[in-house]
Design a binder for these strands. Structure first.
Lengths: 192, 192
DNA sequence: GTTCACCTTCCTAACGGTCGTTAGTCTACT
DNA sequence: AGTAGACTAACGACCGTTAGGAAGGTGAAC
């Protein structure tokens, strides 16, 4: 039951925001009364931060899973495949929406705690891609630049530009952006 | 006074969101009492949509201004300069934050009206950049692809990936992303 | 095996506070 | 005289939260 509350709250927070989501509506969606939530969570803040921690942890393991799965793939497949990785699991869409919404527009009062939760994920993402660039470069020797950190940051930038479109317009527009930006990005990344 | 209310409301909506911003706090920031707002706006919804219309109109003229100013510049300068164009005027930061927040995470009840307001701006942005790509290509003959629409979409994707970082982390991180992504994007866009 | 205390988890009722909104009034300028 | 724009007062609705109690399960003591 505790987990059901969390998962439903996560969806509500993703679509309505911290202020817009209400414990009453969450409870109703779960099928219980509002005060019953307090048997599991100390209050709205704790529920929110628990949902965020859960979504981040799931995303982190998701990420590690992907890198493990693509360990032997060439760089091009690894980067390109990452675009499809998101739209694979459907409920991950709500998770990503929740994370993006919370990191871009956090409720002011929880800004510090949220930053301490979210920043590590994006740091680790950056480190992962930096390492991958360096390792693959040693194997494949194709990159134009040897500033792997910048290359990784550029990739993350492109990823975020397309993901926001996934949140905004849905999968079709997302794929259109991917098809537009990927060939250009890849051409710019590797040697002529 | 009507305009003062609107501008202060815009900042509040940008930083707190539709649900998070309250008419009481807006009135206080303006220096009047809450019900006085109703002498100028029919309610919270109208104030919100007025602020959005204002921000969009200002952004649209801002955009037109930029293209006029860069009419004779080569494509590289025109695209590259666009990254600096945002951080030029400081209050534009709140405008952009407001627009992005509203387009990505609109209050559910106003979603349709908001879409009808925002979509034209991004359509016009896409058309502008598509036209610029085509015109400059005729002059400079440097682009790798002749799918100008896709090139424009790719550029907008990169822009959005960096702008979201401007909203999230501020100017320093924004510039870092720009410096990472621009050389790669430009190399991928033009012929070797 | 029964009893009893305890804990969990749900409930109803209600609190204080804030929200957006309306009614009605006063003031000042046209 | 009339209108625009500010005010005070107050409305009902909803918010997060707390108090207090009922139902059910668990586990130790007898």
């Amino acid at each position: 039951m505790k987990k059901e509350i969390l998962q439903i709250a996560l969806v509500q927070f993703a679509n309505e925001g911290y202020e817009g989501a209400s414990l009453g509506k969450i409870a109703e969606a779960v099928g219980i009364k509002k005060p019953s939530i307090y048997a599991h969570y100390a209050g709205k803040d704790e529920l929110f931060l628990s949902a965020l921690t859960y979504a981040l942890e799931r995303e982190r393991s998701h990420l590690g899973c992907y890198f493990k799965q693509m360990k032997e793939e060439p760089l091009e497949n690894l980067l390109r495949g990452y675009f499809n990785w998101f739209i694979q699991d459907l409920e991950g869409n709500d998770h990503m929406k929740f994370i993006l919404r919370t990191m871009y527009f956090p409720p002011a009062r929880l800004e510090n705690e949220i930053g301490e939760l979210i920043n590590p994920l994006f740091d680790s993402m950056h480190r992962h891609f930096t390492r991958v660039m360096r390792e693959r470069e040693r194997r494949e020797n194709i990159l134009y630049s040897d500033d792997f950190s910048s290359c990784a940051l550029a990739f993350i930038t492109v990823i975020e530009g397309t993901i926001t479109e996934l949140v905004y317009s849905g999968e079709a527009a997302y794929l259109k952006r991917y098809e537009a930006v990927w060939p250009i990005f890849w051409r710019g990344l590797v040697r002529a």
